[in-house]
Amino acid sequence: MHCHDPECKEACPVNAIKKFEEGPVLIDVNRCIGCKFCVDACPFDVPKFNPATGKVDKCHMCFDRVPNKEPACVQTCPTGALLFGERQTMIQKAMERKAQLNGYIYGDVDNKPLGGTSFIYVLKEKPSVYGLPNVGSTISPATSVLRHSKWLLIPAALGGLMYLASWRQRRIKEKEE
């Protein structure tokens, strides 16, 4: 999965996860601190923590091969179940295949989990049958709490300032007397 608005990116405290225009969502291994916030934030369970290295890995869409070759998984798949290509082309193909199968599409077309996953499944049955989660198009509240709770420091600082102000007032009164 390489979501349009990746939830893992929001959860990462060190900005180690980047979304590229071309599609891939990458983890910068040098920046990763192994906090596993992304592991639990991702609704698809894509980033995997590696206890041996203490860091998180995920599919990087073979960015080092792509302009010239297909990703390794696509190339190696013996039955040709995986296809790789330009976004519009792929959507086109998915629609055609869906019509053939009279099935369902999970990914970029009808429902767009997290703004679209850049990974389209064409399925015979409903997605839930295959264990694909029903994900909304925006990030979950847990992750936004994780991301934005630091703003509570502002009211805390304001409260502290109010103390200082009333204390100062007290001090001034004390001096006047």
């Binding site: 109010m162 103390y163 102000a165 009333s166 204390w167 007290r170």
Partner: peptide, 11 residues
Amino acid sequence: MRALIHKQLMP
């Protein structure tokens, strides 16, 4: 005493 002072200090 701290509680008393705190009540005075708290806005």
